[in-house]
Design a protein around this nucleic acid. Sequence first.
DNA 1: TCTGGGGTCCTAGGACCC
DNA 2: TCTGGGGTCCTAGGACCC
Length: 412
Amino acid sequence: MALDETTCAITADDTGCTVLHVDMDAFYASVAVRDRPELRDRPVIVGGGHRGVVLSATYAAREYGVRSAMPMTRARRLCPQARVIPPDFERFGAVSAAIMETFRSVTPLVEPLSMDEAFLDVSGSLRRFPSPTQVGVYLQARIADEQRITCSVGVATTTQVAKLASRRAKPDGLVVVPPTGITAFLHPLGVEELWGVGDKTAAQLHRLGLQTVGDVAHTPESVLQRAMGPAFGARLHVLAWGGDDRHVTPRRGHDEPERSIGSDETFGRDTDDPAVVLRELLRLSTKVAGRMRAANVSGRTITLRVRFFDFTTITRSRTLRDATNQTPEIYATAADLFAALGLQRARIRLVGVRVEGLGDTATAARQLMLGQREHGWEDAERAVDRATNRFGGSAVRPATLITPRSDQSQAP
DNA sequence: TCTGGGGTCCTAGGACCC
DNA sequence: TCTGGGGTCCTAGGACCC
């Protein structure tokens, strides 16, 4: 963003703008580059894998058209000279945690949206800071100083407008949308900028002849509801007038349990071998169950996901009588759901296992009617968890996972 | 070598219950 | 003898976000 526009934004009247959206610029790529000074100002892509996508790209890479979520094959074609760096999520997580703490030093009302962005309600910070904008300026300076990466800030009266403002501010900028300037800011934007409007919805709106947020705002709510569904249509109309009433809901760490835990994996090459699929389901079930136990949660609904070579994706789920976080139960259910598909040599691209309906394991009323053998399993899995903690993830695995060569595989 | 992996939320139909 | 009307749970799919 041009400096003069930023300067101008800072001088805007931010009275009543108590919501900040702070968003790191090209977060993964920025973190990767800051520790490799030789890569400064060079096109760098974080991503990789045989069939992967771009997770993050420096602005130098973006100049070649590289975008996040783009297939790596395409990204390399667009920018062959880019340096590709695999993600280091542990490192990103540590930087993220430090940044969130910096946010919390100005207000307890911090709502992280992901590793690299958060909403802040700064209405209580105005004894220490002259204005909401000055809070944003302060945070930008501190993060640049402490983390040596840049971020962009949106300052507004509502979360959605603050988020759109920070996007407008990128990179390393700050945009204020004063209460009196909301429609002037929103209405020229394309419909796809609205929170919750992706490719499909944007295309649908375009078919209705609606290109800008202003077009949506000036379409009768009833028309939007008929086209997009009652709830979504109404929401779009509200958002288009900047009237979103969602407020900043502080969340910290794991005090709010996840609703589901799952894992999926794209095969290096499509497979039509049930033994390969089942072994992968066992690996994923082991991973998911381990994460559930670490989080002290259990769940009743187990969902299998299968994506075929042509990207069509199906899910099958089953709800158990009792909540579980045990590998054998999760795996048995997933394998059963897979068998029930009755696939004949279908080319499979991805499989996934997810457990939903999570609740605290301790309070999950578990009624064991038949046999107490499961306690044996729980004891065994606890032992596995301990060994994993001591020796790392590969220390203890189901026997069928020890010989990973597909030509030696056995159905578990 | 087109298209990851972690999630959330919504919808819609059918079963089932009152 | 024309079958209403909620509410909740389960299942499947889809859109979206980062």
